[in-house]
Design a protein around this nucleic acid. Structure first.
Lengths: 254, 254
DNA sequence: ATAAACTATCACGTAAGGAGAGGGTCAAGC
DNA sequence: GCTTGACCCTCTCCTTACGTGATAGTTTAT
């Protein structure tokens, strides 16, 4: 277990930065002593490394958090993408260096430069596009749906405390569902919890229409990353959830 | 003359950014139409280029402004320094890329990395030191005087509006002095303006004692960079200022 | 036991713009 | 001469990723 100072020195960041990352939930200590001290383990080191790599590439912290917490985040894949992005950043730097050199030359020879040459390499669009590509790859097909956008808009203003409340509420619902797994997906209490779940989606993220909700339920078994996420909570939960949601959607009033 | 959109496209910055640069006095348009439109000339292009180069190296805008406005700023020298700094930034990127690669390798072989290796290249200290070196070089011999330090302390908290006020006041004083150039350095109105000038130095930068003020006046003709700066406002201004300040200092009460 | 070197939590401040409202201006085509 | 689309302006509030104290508890070293 390492303390803040060690981490901050290794990572070349300030202690305040680690406090900040803790506050927004980007990098929580593995353990908090009864004196309030933050203690980090080896996993946190890896996570910090990932954070710093992404930060080097100018990803906003919120996106970094979303990517690292995405069920099915793949560290190897991420590292490979990071390498590529660093490469293009390097290329951009080299272009700028050429521009500087050419400018020097034009000063010495007294030759006027073309305007476009003066700013070659300065626009970030190429890299930004590249970045977006990776970020979208992580989010795959959800990135362009209107529901996703709404979710982004809503969650943009959530504070750290909001997130804690949301996580607490969601966890409570899942534990309700897990508790009812023995009684089958049509069990009234299970169905009530499913209704709660949908309501919480509506409250916190986006209009979770019956159609969307149905699609979500199907995805829980069709998409291995979601499956992994829920199986991790409880074996069999992914399939159970999927069935319970299907049942819920079929028996909606109206 | 170019409009904001052209400039913004060439430089790969937003229009809002140009507005901002105008507001803080970093890049003022060469001409403002009576419709309020901003028009930039070729000199502004060069200045924008310099700004972007420095920004690429993470210099804060305030420092960029200070360097570009420093009497005796040398574009060639700046470009050479920028090239070097870009080089070290590139080296740092390459180190990070190696770290990414090694991390990948350690994942594949299952070998654990040493902590320091995990973060190799992430700290910016080396480059920051390099940057500081150049910034100090620009300020040359003023950098270590107590007056300079006081000035740094005072100006550190100035806002954009403060700077606008200061520039406006200073410009007004200089135009007073220029207007009085025909009447000689001892003219009462000129002397009043000189007193104002010294007062404004005291207010905004540092205790401008009579001795310092005298030295400053001499520098205006002795140091070519200052001379160039004032000659640029009005031919003959440097010498006139110098004489007027000398006269002022000799006739101080007490 | 006392100093030095850690740690913590507020609370406020900052830089460099982004976003958007609300509203003028200019050139082209009809 | 009028509209329309592409410009431009100012103004105000918002955001990100922390920096900067202030104040105070804790651990370790002498």
């Amino acid at each position: 277990m390492y303390q803040v100072k060690e981490l901050s020195q290794w990572g070349g960041v300030s202690i305040r930065t680690l406090h900040h990352y803790d506050q927004i939930g980007l990098l929580k200590p593995d353990l908090i002593g009864e004196n309030g001290y933050r203690y980090y383990g080896d996993q946190s080191l890896e996570r910090l490394q990932q954070i710093l790599f992404f930060k080097e590439l100018d990803f906003p912290l919120r996106e970094i958090q979303a990517m690292l917490d995405h069920p099915g985040f793949d560290r190897q894949k991420a590292l490979r993408a990071q390498y590529e992005l660093l490469q293009s950043k390097k290329n951009r730097l080299e272009t700028i260096m050429e521009t500087v050199k050419e400018t020097l030359l034009s000063l010495e020879t007294g030759q006027k430069m073309k305007i476009k040459e003066m700013f070659k390499g300065m626009d970030m669009q190429a890299i930004e596009a590249h970045k977006e590509k990776y970020a979208q790859e992580v989010e795959e097909r959800w990135g362009h749906t209107p529901a996703y956008k709404q979710s982004q808009q809503k969650t943009a203003h959530y504070t750290a405390q909001d997130w804690e409340r949301i996580q607490a509420r969601t966890a409570a619902i899942y534990s309700q569902i897990v508790a009812g797994m023995g009684r089958g997906p049509a069990d009234p209490e299970v169905q009530a919890a499913i209704a709660d779940l949908r309501q919480s989606f509506c409250d916190y993220y986006y209009d979770c229409t019956p159609e969307i909700f149905k699609g979500l339920g199907e995805m829980y078994v069709a998409d291995e990353r979601f499956t992994a996420f829920y199986e991790n909570i409880q074996t069999g939960l992914a399939a159970f959830l999927s069935q319970a949601i299907a049942h819920y959607c079929e028996h909606l009033p109206g």
